[in-house]
Design a protein around this nucleic acid. Structure first.
Lengths: 214, 214, 214, 214
DNA sequence: CATGAATGAGCTTTCATTCAT
DNA sequence: GATGAATGAAAGCTCATTCAT
């Protein structure tokens, strides 16, 4: 992979376009090399196969995503659980707003975890995510910021699930189908606040809040 | 489609297996006809094309799903919003427990709504679902069962999203990867209750509940 | 072929539509039986195969074409060669005007005489046509109506070729692409007269007419 | 298309054979690759699809045909209309004599102009042909070489139609079905002269020439 | 006599990957 | 390191025809 940077970027760009539109299975290496104007043989000198390319892309995307992480996250002790969670959601959604195709690929992986190729890629990320949330939850419980009677594994699941849900809500409800619309940062913040408020308080009327079912 | 019932069922069964494992795009009609032991030409006398088969399957699945709907849903006026929601989730999950492959296909459709074929199929269901939830929400607000300051579109989105999330939680966390494990009805109920409680109350400690962010 | 007339006509009609649009090779028996609402097995009880259907159709078309033949042709002795020729062309073109699809099939056969199936069908008609024209030419020469130095086989060829040419001129130049335009009998006569005049006199200026080349 | 010339020629040759015998629709790429001894996948690296191959072939044929054009045509002003027409017909027929399969494909295109693929290819050639003839006719009328009372569009039509007719006459009447017979250039000239004489003078006896019908 | 399910060869096209140059 | 021709399996789908009922 000692490619000149220019060419490497071109291939990555075209590959992201292809995977975003077609998904892993239906992405065509033929189309990618055609778009990137490189020889088919060259492609197989840069990457072992389609899977290798996909792995490389996901690594690059993850890397890029790190740039969006808020400084707040660097010092979790100093902040309230919901502040931290809000920053998590916000940074993820902000990344998606500015890199919609990359985010789309990430979502494909998340949503089709049964897929053999996705499974492999996602496993690590998921476990890391779980561990991270578990730490946050432990801290939050100890501080009395979230209920101590909740099932921790369930909360982890729900927080990850709703993180993805923010993307869907943002792109479907806020931006509509119009991907070219100039969405603004405020939209992102509004979306995130809706979710955080929901996660905190649920939807029942506060006075009647209790733990009985119904 | 005046096929003998036996053969029709065989094809449907093999097709569900195929779609559940491979998804729409990668499902192979070659494999389906091979598994069902019919000639390729025969397949195309039963179904116009792959899409037609998929549509037929989805219709059958939707039909079958209706059998799981609770009698409670027939009279929404008589029940609390969260009771109704719990019954919705429970019936969906119970169907999934007993028809995991069919449910898996349904989930594929839900999760890949950008897919042209899924889009077509899902559109109607989604709109119907939205309308249904909207009615429930209107009723619930008028009764004071849920907060009146919430964004209705957001709640609709979140309720549909969490419905799917129950499947994932159930199959991943409760049943593990072991699809053949004898899961029981109680597992379903436990899962649903976790979600309903979360939707009602969120995760923050009750006393501190307020609408401020952080 | 003891079909009820109604059903026979329906099949013939749909088959003519199919052959007119798709030609022999690409005509689909599947589509014909579908259009005619008959069972595929039934089709093969009425006709041996596609070729048999086509032969039958051509016979029916030839038969129908006879109805258009002018009474003038019944008594060739009583008329000038060019009058007879004009009537030939006119009746052919009038048939085509009123039965454009049937005429189109006839033209396909004429134009693709190398085609094995067309060859077989056309052979008889062509030989009959040749014999007929030969008689007319013999008579015309003996009467001094046409030049005696001409190559009789060539004239036969040219007269048959120009007969088909009238169809093309009529449908392309006169009617344009607008097959639904209400073409009138006068159009047919005008077209025919152009051809007859050409066949009689050629296009060189009369005074300079001579038999030298150039 | 940087194929070695040898292989390119082989494929073209086999493809011409196939199209000449079977026509566009019934030509089989399977047969072509089999005959040319190349892998099916290879074919689709040389050509986009069947239509692309056909277009390529037609371009090659048109190109080759240019080699047959008489130097006389380069200076139309210097020659009599019928001389020019004779050269047109002669060169076309001479090409057909030496490239019978290619000519056959060209004729298929001409004769089945309704065919979507042929239509596309032929359109340009037809318009060019019409424009060319129109120029010749204008010049000829101004010089008094052909009658001024004729319908110019009709003459254009008839001249193009008779051009094709020369092929048929030559291959059917002169050469018979025996495509391998060593036809000679004289046959071509004889055929053309028959047509030119006919176009000039028609077939009626000269003294009686007039413009009345009958 | 009518039916329509069954058949399998055939079609065009796309694919990821290899490898000689 | 770069190239792109070569490959053949696989895809979805259509076809004319047969034959048991």
């Amino acid at each position: 992979m000692n490619l000149p940077d220019e060419k490497r970027k071109l291939i990555e760009e075209k590959a992201i376009d292809e995977f975003a539109v077609w998904g892993f299975d239906n992405a065509s290496i033929n189309r990618i090399v055609e778009q990137a104007q490189i020889a088919k043989g060259s492609f197989y000198q840069y990457f072992e196969d389609k899977k290798d390319l996909f792995n490389h892309l996901m690594a690059r995307i993850s890397e890029e995503k790190l740039n969006y992480i808020s400084p707040v996250m660097l010092n979790p002790q100093a902040h309230n659980f919901f502040t931290l969670l809000r920053e998590m959601y916000r940074s993820g959604l902000e990344f998606a707003r500015q890199n919609p195709k990359a985010a789309r690929i990430g979502n494909q992986v998340y949503k089709n975890q049964e897929h053999p190729v996705h499974k492999e890629i996602f496993k690590g990320g998921k476990d890391a995510g779980k561990a991270f949330y578990d730490q946050l939850i432990t801290l939050a419980i100890s501080r009395g910021e979230i209920r101590s009677d909740i099932d921790r594994e369930f909360v982890t699941h729900i927080l990850m699930s709703l993180n993805v849900s923010t993307f869907e809500y943002y792109f479907e409800v806020i931006k509509g189908a119009d991907f070219d619309m100039a969405a603004v940062e405020d939209d992102v913040m509004d979306t995130v606040n809706l979710f955080i408020d929901f996660i905190k308080n649920g939807i029942s009327v506060p006075e009647k809040t209790n733990n009985n079912h119904d």
